[in-house]
Design a protein around this nucleic acid. Structure first.
Length: 397
DNA sequence: GGTTGCGGGCAAA
DNA sequence: TTTGCCCGCAACC
């Protein structure tokens, strides 16, 4: 289509600086820049009003990947693929793990799956899950546009995400896989237990292998201004001192402000300035592996695989999801011997958790759609930690 | 079972 | 007309 770029386009290209080359176009332009001297590194957390030009050889771009939970939106334009952000699933209790990580689950893309997901409980505290919808684009979800033109794939993001980053697709998939495996294992474990009981308690204790946990580390380590308001209300409320070991996608709240990666809201800005600084911004959460107990209360909740997104990010074609990005900076101890507080005080009984909630607490703005669900009144506070179950089921190695 | 892309259709601005 | 969104379908993993 653009192969027949005329002189006008050429002139436009010539007059534009290299930076302009990357930003002077709009996804809806009839003609997009055809002569791109250098393509961008794939950005898995595009935010703000950024534009990128990827190589058509880029697998991630080909697949229109994004670590944000983006769903396809029909814009009645087959040439331009439009996707809108689904937001992030958070704990209605705004619970934190011992070390202050927050629960940021990836919303299921499929509507049915998402509804089903929301009926589940927080894997950390069993509280209700709450979908924090994205409203970063004039009250509407942030939209991403993809357009294939010749040897390039043009990407444009409209809107700034006003919510934390969810777990990545890979992490969510890993979590499901673990859950499946665990379910299968549980059933076999039960059979084993019965056999053992029949054998008059020979002493052999049926144990479940502690599943490795995914400790995801903040990509967006600090919420954007508008984002802070989104979660702040409940954050300021007495938070459940989550002592359960099961880990979904957890981010240390305190780390939201200082990360190895530029915050998303600023990432976009930085990218605007340096459109080819992809590597700088493509460092996603770097989870660490931690053999640790899984959960306190029920076995059906999600688990997370040890997985690293470090370095080049999960979508980096040359780095697998299980790459060496494990971050040793985070202690998995949050899910270790957590002593359940007799009565969880506000802010949580665990010093780590308290210290990890530095986010400014602002009133939660009213939300039009799903976002308001599970608001204050909706929340169920579970001030217990079933550590007995925790340890019995998942003895620490 | 979930993701992704596509497209019909509707409603509101 | 544009935009957002719901829905269903099919292909794929």
């Amino acid at each position: 289509m653009l192969k027949g770029a005329d002189d006008s386009v050429m002139e436009q290209e010539d007059s534009a600086s290299r930076h302009g080359e990357m930003t002077s176009w709009d996804i809806n332009d009839i003609k997009l820049p055809q002569h791109v001297s250098q393509t961008d590194w794939f950005q898995e957390w595009p935010d703000s009003y950024v534009k990128h030009i990827y190589s058509s050889e880029d697998k991630n771009a080909q697949r229109h990947h994004s670590s944000w939970a983006m769903r396809n939106t029909n814009n009645h334009n087959s040439r331009i693929l439009k996707k809108s952000c689904l937001g992030v699933v958070v704990c209605g209790n705004n619970c934190s793990t011992l070390d202050g990580r927050k629960i940021y689950l990836r919303p299921a893309i499929c509507d049915k799956a998402r509804q089903k997901q929301q009926r589940k409980c927080c894997p950390n505290c069993n509280g209700p899950l709450q979908l924090l919808s994205c409203r970063g684009h004039g009250g509407y979800p942030v939209t991403n546009f993809w357009r294939h033109e010749g040897q390039f794939i043009f990407f444009q993001c409209k809107g700034a995400h006003d919510h934390p980053r969810p777990e990545t697709k890979l992490e969510a998939e890993a979590r499901r896989s673990i859950q499946k495996a665990k379910t299968a294992f549980s059933s076999s474990s039960l059979r084993l237990k019965r056999i053992q009981e029949i054998e008059s308690l020979t002493g052999a204790m049926p144990t479940q292998e502690p599943l490795p946990l995914l400790l995801s580390y903040p990509d967006a380590h600090m919420p954007p201004a508008n984002f802070r308001g989104r979660l702040s209300k409940s954050s300021q409320e007495p938070t459940l001192s989550s002592c359960s070991g099961q880990l979904p996608f957890l981010r240390r709240a305190g780390e939201d402000g200082a990360s190895r990666e530029a915050p998303t809201w600023s990432q976009g800005l930085s990218l605007r300035g340096t459109p080819r600084a992809g590597r700088l911004s493509s460092v996603p959460a770097v989870p660490s592996t931690a053999p640790s107990p899984q959960q306190c209360t029920h076995l059906s909740t999600q688990h997370v695989l040890p997985m690293a997104e470090g370095g080049h990010g999960p979508f980096s074609s040359d780095v697998g999801p299980l790459g060496d990005g494990s971050c040793g900076t985070e202690s998995p101890l949050a899910f270790g011997p957590c002593v359940p507080p007799p009565a969880a005080p506000q802010g949580g009984p665990c010093p780590m958790a308290r210290g990890a909630q530095p986010q400014p607490q602002l009133p939660l703005p009213p939300r039009g759609r799903e976002g308001h669900r599970g608001g204050g009144g909706h929340q169920v506070r579970l001030n217990y930690c079933n550590n007995d179950v925790f340890f019995n089921l998942y003895p620490l190695r």
